[in-house]
Design a protein around this nucleic acid. Sequence first.
DNA 1: GACACGTGGAA
DNA 2: TTTCCAAGTGT
Length: 291
Amino acid sequence: MGVMNELHAPVLAWYDAHARDLPWREPSASAWSVMVSELMLQQTPVARVLPVHAAWLERWPTPADLAAEPTGEAVRAWGRLGYPRRALRLHAAASVIVAEHGGEVPTSHDVLLTLPGVGEYTAAAIATFAFGQRHVVLDTNVRRVLGRVVGGVELPGASLTRAEREQAAALLPEDRPTAATWSVAVMELGALVCTAVNPRCGTCPVVDRCAWVAAGRPAYDGPPRRAQAWAGTDRQCRGRLLAVLREAEGTVPLARLEQAWADAPQRVRCLAGLVADGLAVRLDDGRHALP
DNA sequence: GACACGTGGAA
DNA sequence: TTTCCAAGTGT
């Protein structure tokens, strides 16, 4: 291509000056460290991931180290990050890596995509951030930044569209290492400046090229986004039950779980769900434990 | 495409 | 206090 997009230089310069020092961004970080961080960061803030990621890498420096442990150890070490099925998927991915890929995190985007817990975003992120490849990396941050700067709208829609993929692809620098830096830079801009609430447009490197700012920062007017209910949901019930299992030394008697959730039918249903999902096992006398 | 799936900090 | 949101994936 040769000609840099007008957004590239200011965003790259901003990133160079303001990027956070995160462990998985260190030059010495392994692909496994990057992969672990990506799974942990799905729907989870950086601040909460930091300590768990450090302990995880300390305990399981390679996929083989994790694969050698029971899945329950992964669930326990996952702690309170949320969405504990991610711990199961990370463990399963480690097992596949050992069984089919010589214990090394695959470098191929297509192969990464076959791993449990690795979807479109995460495959692109690992290939880009661990191996310096050129892929379209579209997470919620990038969608929001491009939606504002290029699309002129405050927030992206509920689902990722083909137009967004094409737009992101068109903006991706041709040069491989530059493309990789661009991807992490746009994400960082979304995380630190072009935030969902109270964006800091005053410090944005591309505020003078932003379609949303030019339009007077119009408020989101798309379809109302359903606020996720929480109190009394199966999700809350499962969380309570799993917290009991996670914090227990060994197996837990049914009475302890009954204590954690009053509604009996819901408790029974959720417990069965946890077992079906592989997050818990049922033993004799109704005792339960992590797998 | 809609839904389920955890957790806790910020406004 | 309630609501919103945080580097998504699988069904």
